[in-house]
Design a protein around this nucleic acid. Structure first.
Lengths: 345, 345
DNA sequence: TTGTATGCGTTATCAA
DNA sequence: TTGATAACGCATACAA
């Protein structure tokens, strides 16, 4: 099955390939109407489709951008992927999506792969790890890629000067915690994600800040790390309750965790929000359908992806290598307002 | 920023480009060890990465495959995407993912785009529509693409002879309904997805089959179409209950719908499974964390994506243009076994 | 308004 | 073992 090339079209239409090229590319070149018609007809008949590789080679523009996510099946990342893929298409680009399976090693490999594909930019959705070892390797790789003139944007902090499009996670943690405090909660537990991921550290820092700002007790016993899944959220909540905590609310570091927490509490017959209030971060697509509907901070996930693509495609400039997008707390039914603050026994 | 080419390497290493090419491609070509070492060192130093476009042009193999999904943020599709992207990488290919936003028009456009990208195959995740109009246009486009020698695989029926990797939806509908019947349920409602999508028609047909096979009543009043989202599932359930139905169970055509149904019932104080049993199809990642955990048929979503990629990459043959994968019903807590069958009033 | 010819970076064929 | 060179399909500078 030999593919039809621009020569075939030119021959059959009795014109030069230059003319054909001008016509398919809609170049603002003066071409007589009837010639254009004739050539277009031949293109139709022959089912001619320009060869992308040749075009790319000639123009050295791949019109492709890479996206590296940790787990495309996690709504957090799939929401980002949606923003990236849709916007890329809109701007005439293709998105190559890579799933690292939360494996740092794979993430590096994908970076090389993407580089080899000649993408014009790479968006890395996952946040950086705190352990210095992997982060050095990561930074070297990134530096090397950027030196080749291809852009890299991260969607969560990596502790370096890589261009960042994200949300202020420290402030976010603070705001979410303050939301609880304002509603009368004084004894609040924190169920976190991977404590080794910078994003989670920031959120926890914010949580702590809000507490000390209000001179409220920060009880380390009630701060439990875990990971960003419902299954672990369930387990972590179990661990928390094994301590018989004196709390009126739990701050979950993301919605997945909250889902697990909600299930645990339900099974134990603990009512939300009557007995315990739950708040989290994310506002994933199904979070308004949980039982009860979750009060959570809506992350601009789609927009994060969208803006990054705009930047890579040169439609938007970035100042100071950093762009922080706004978020908002969506109040639903999982947080109760307490009139009389509960005191530690 | 000029990219370094094979010439730069050849020059600096004092060899011909042919030699460099052989070395980077690991061709089983006899090359003296020290020469290979020297060249590899230069490659390192120069950060040389072969130009994909040139390689593709020369070898006319894009090593790219396209994936068209309706909504990458829907766990159904993101699960498939996971199977596709991971497997593609494994087999040395890139996955180009396109999000059609459930718009048939966009779906066609993406097909063209993918064709233009020179992909080696296209996987279309969404099922076909029953309305003849769009389906004719779709079939023409597909035929045209296949004529160019590029493979297309659909992951849900389209009512035509396009290679299909899927699940037997009629049998699935039957099995799920039978599961309920075996547990004593006699009056069962069906809350469907888009009735215009072939997949949903098949499931409904299976539902009906199971009922008539057991000489049970098929009550059209209790069969309500909707769409594959939690929000619509909620609404549809509301519509169902406005009829004060005499039922002991609801068959939801997918997990998203079930999530909405669960929330509606919870709000109305109707207990699951004590008052009403719920079963559905999908077993999406969070379905074991719903309240109560959902009894549902596990679709081999990841595997659907995985197998399709294997076929496209020529690692696996397909017989009769159709490959049906197994599923299984995962029993959790949303279905109650009724000892004494309920009778219609 | 149209055509000719060059080069993009590779791989692969042939020659040395 | 290694090197020279043609061809892949296209866009474009230049010529007509």
């Amino acid at each position: 099955v030999k593919r039809v090339s621009i020569f075939d079209v030119a021959e059959k239409a009795n014109v030069s390939i230059a003319t054909v090229s001008r016509i398919v590319n809609n170049a603002d070149y003066p071409i007589s109407v009837k010639l254009r018609k004739r050539v277009q007809k031949v293109i139709e008949e022959l089912n001619y489709v320009p060869n992308r590789s040749a075009q790319q080679l000639r123009t050295s523009s791949s019109r492709a951008i890479g996206l590296v996510v940790r787990d495309i099946a996690d709504p957090y990342f799939s929401q980002i992927a949606k923003g990236v893929t849709e916007t890329a298409m809109e701007l005439g680009h293709m998105a190559l999506v890579c799933n690292s399976e939360r494996n740092a090693r794979f993430e590096y490999n994908y970076l090389d792969l993407l580089l080899h594909q000649g993408v014009e930019g790479i968006i890395i959705a996952g946040g950086g790890y705190a352990d210095g070892n992997s982060s050095v390797e990561f930074q070297n790789k990134v530096a090397k890629i950027r030196k080749q003139g291809i852009q890299i944007i991260v969607l969560a902090p990596h502790g370096t000067d890589i261009p960042l499009v994200s949300v202020d996670n420290v402030k976010l943690g603070e705001d979410v915690c303050s939301f609880l405090i304002e509603r009368g909660h004084r004894n609040i537990a924190y169920i976190g994600g991977d404590p080794n991921v910078l994003t989670d550290r920031d959120r926890l820092r914010g949580f702590k800040n809000a507490l000390v700002n209000q001179s409220l007790p920060y009880n380390e016993d009630y701060v439990i790390p875990g990971s960003y899944t419902a299954a672990v959220g369930y387990k972590t909540c179990e661990a928390l309750f094994s301590k018989k905590p004196n709390i009126s609310a739990i701050f979950c570091s993301n919605d997945n965790i909250a889902v697990g927490v909600l299930r645990f509490l339900h099974e134990k017959g603990i009512l939300v929000p009557d007995d315990i209030s739950i708040i989290s971060i994310g506002d994933l697509p199904d979070s308004d359908h949980s039982i009860p509907p979750l009060t959570t901070a809506r992350l601009p996930l789609f927009e994060l992806g969208r803006q990054s693509v705009h930047i890579i495609c040169g439609e938007k400039m970035m100042q100071d290598q950093i762009l922080l997008l706004p978020y908002m707390i969506v109040e639903r039914k999982s947080v109760k307002t307490i009139r009389e603050p509960v005191h530690i026994s």
